[in-house]
């Protein structure tokens, strides 16, 4: 179910990017898609009632006993690392995209992407 919501969010973003004419809205659509994918990644590692995958000093001594229970209960840490990286990347591309939007607006005087079409054919 949660995956479906996530997919719906993805499709919303895609719809927004494809249908909207305003450049800023297109950028927003792409951001929504990226968030959808990030949430999807997080959910892959999520476990209801899970614990943080961190082993404290005190627990180390009795690690053999706790291992199986610990592994079964803790959330997968990898997707979180991935999402952090991916957020940083999307931040970079967002900044560049917005910069391009602003420069294009200065040149063409419009945000309507259907009117920015000098390159065609």
């Amino acid at each position: 179910m949660a995956y479906a919501w996530c997919f719906l969010l993805f499709m919303t973003g895609l719809y927004c990017a494809v249908v909207k004419k305003n450049m800023v809205k297109i950028v927003l659509g792409i951001i929504i898609m990226e968030y959808a994918v990030n949430i999807f990644l997080i959910m892959l590692g999520y476990r209801i009632g899970g614990v943080a995958p961190i082993v404290g000093k005190g627990e180390l001594a009795g690690i053999d006993k706790v291992t199986s229970a610990f592994v079964n209960n803790c959330v997968d840490p990898l997707p979180q690392a991935l999402v952090l990286t991916s957020i940083v990347i999307s931040l970079g591309s967002l900044a560049l995209m917005i910069a391009l939007c602003i420069r294009t607006y200065e040149r063409y005087g419009t945000f309507d992407i259907t009117e920015i079409r000098r390159l065609r054919g």
Binding site: V18, K20, R117, G121
Partner: peptide, 17 residues
């Protein structure tokens, strides 16, 4: 074919989708 490549971004995005 050149007429199809009209320079409209939403059109290109539609092709991708």
């Amino acid at each position: 074919l050149r007429w199809l490549h009209s320079g409209v971004l939403p059109m290109y995005l539609t092709w991708v989708t």
